[in-house]
């Protein structure tokens, strides 16, 4: 039996370690004064937030508040939309990704993305995962096998598909397909993974599996997730960002950005309070 004092000391030491660990990490992404337009329509205005390394940040807010647009700014997916324009900057490890010198292909390798609906290629399970590394120039069979196995294991799918690597990805269930898409994103060794409502097309059990997986992935990756499910944000994220378009036609703004714990027990802004308690929506 340990004395109370000993137990207390142990807890204090543990807290110190956790604190040191957190302080060491710093911010992976810094969004500074970001505004975004589709043609002349301003979608987002003056968004500023710091996303710490190896954390899960959830973006919540009513439909149309610009949370998916913000997510897509982080790996410049919006570049593909004609007449979209971005002001301000997004720093990834201190480098502005909107600098002309930024290599967009390399950026998207470092910042992977998983979408709302599982979208595997109509190819085999193996080919789905090996596609990215292959494009990157890996042609050694043994090395590729290792990458595929490791990625599927990290995505908690290996045990379910190890005997059917050559069957079509489309024969998998929805939840499995989504984990395959996560494995595909992991295969190119990203640092950040963006999730755009990854569970909205899945049943509750598949959703729980993905949520567990995200918490595991947090050990090694920085995760930003857009979710319509507030309880999902409450369950898995470390930090929650609440975005809101207050008046139809005005841009979405960041209303509150704080610890998830704080947001869901005692939010600072009355608009956050009213939204998460379901008093408007």
């Amino acid at each position: 039996m340990k004395s109370n004092l000993e137990v207390e000391n142990l807890i204090v030491e543990k807290d110190k370690e956790v604190g040191k660990e957190m302080a060491k990490l710093g911010n992976k992404i810094e969004i500074r004064d970001l505004s975004m337009y589709y043609d002349s329509f301003k979608v987002l205005e003056n968004i500023t937030m710091s996303i710490p390394c190896r954390s899960i940040v959830a973006l919540i807010g009513p439909s149309g508040c610009g949370k998916s647009s913000l997510l897509r700014c982080i790996n410049r997916m919006n570049d593909l939309i004609p007449n979209s324009k971005v002001e301000g900057e997004i720093l990834l490890d201190g480098e502005n990704i909107y600098n002309p010198s930024c290599e967009v292909i390399e950026l998207r390798r470092r910042v992977g993305m998983v979408f709302q609906k599982p979208n595997p290629f109509p190819k085999s399970v193996y080919d789905n995962v090996s596609f990215g590394p292959q494009v990157m120039g890996i042609d050694n069979k043994k090395e590729m096998d290792e990458i595929v196995e490791a990625s599927l294991k990290k995505a908690a799918l290996w045990d379910e598909v190890k005997d059917k690597l050559r069957t079509s990805a489309l024969s998998l269930s929805g939840g499995q397909q989504q984990r395959l898409c996560i494995a595909r994103a992991l295969a190119v060794q990203p640092e950040v993974i963006l999730f755009d409502e990854p569970c909205s097309a899945l049943d509750p059990v598949a959703t729980q599996k993905i949520e567990d997986l995200l918490i595991e992935l947090k050990e090694n990756y920085t995760i930003v997730i857009v979710t319509h499910n507030m309880q999902q944000a409450a369950r898995i994220s470390d930090i929650t960002a609440f975005l809101l378009m207050e008046v139809q036609g005005e841009p979405g703004r960041l209303i509150e950005y704080s610890d998830t714990n704080k947001i869901f027990t005692n939010p600072s802004d009355y608009r956050t309070e009213r939204y998460i308690t379901g008093r408007f929506g």
Binding site: E246, Q248, R274, G278, R279, F280
Partner: peptide
């Protein structure tokens, strides 16, 4: 806020 008449969780708040 304009759309507050629309309260999504009315039954719960009751």
């Amino acid at each position: 806020m304009k759309k507050e008449a629309l309260e999504p969780r009315k039954a719960f708040h009751q």
